[in-house]
Amino acid sequence: MIEIRGLEKYFGALQVLKGIDLDVEKGEVLSVIGASGSGKSTLLYCINGLEPIQKGTVLVDGTDVHAKTTDINKLRQKLGMVFQQWNSFPHLTALENVALAPKIVKGKAKSEARDIAEKQLRHVGLGDKLNVYPNNLSGGQQQRLAIARALAMEPEYMLFDEATSALDPELVGEVLDTMRLLAEEGMTMICVTHEMGFARDVSDRVAYFHQGVMDEIGPPDQIFGDAKSENTRKFLANVR
């Protein structure tokens, strides 16, 4: 379970997160929507400790992400993350991309890391691309590669930061399908997304962020059908 309490984040004098309280249960799929600049990406970075925070706490299964005593590299193994930009390691084949972290971070034997990588690549539908270098893959394939790479660490949570925003429209579907698959398998997911269809169909809850504040959170039906916040309604009217 992820427990966020009173989270405040500043970049210099700019307050980007203004006191966020949020719990994400095991097995839940939470979509985070909101205008650009509202702090959605920053929230994810604060959850896996890629950004330090100024106030509040983030607990992952009871471990304080930002405590000095926390082994953050260990904790991050629980928290897979997929970024807007897919960030494939260009010098490694698809298989090596996925096998690298299990090998060096988890200390798996080479053959075992290979097996894990192969399994995860098949999982995301790249079983026929094992020995292909990333620059011979499409954006959608590279993003699925990024998902496989994160899954190879056997995370308990997956954080998606606009995983489809940088893709050509015709490639969005294959990545969303992979995310749907993970959701069906019971993965706990926090998905920052602009894909309202995905948010509505797949999420258990949807959170709307507005200028660093979580303005509203609730089941998709409520957010998309009967939003309480004026801001939410305005935002949804604009994206649709």
Binding site: N73, L100, K106, M153
Partner: peptide
Amino acid sequence: PMRRAARSLGMSYWQDMRY
């Protein structure tokens, strides 16, 4: 972003540097 992706996989600072 590339380095953050590496760190998000649990790589340490030096693993990110090296690999």
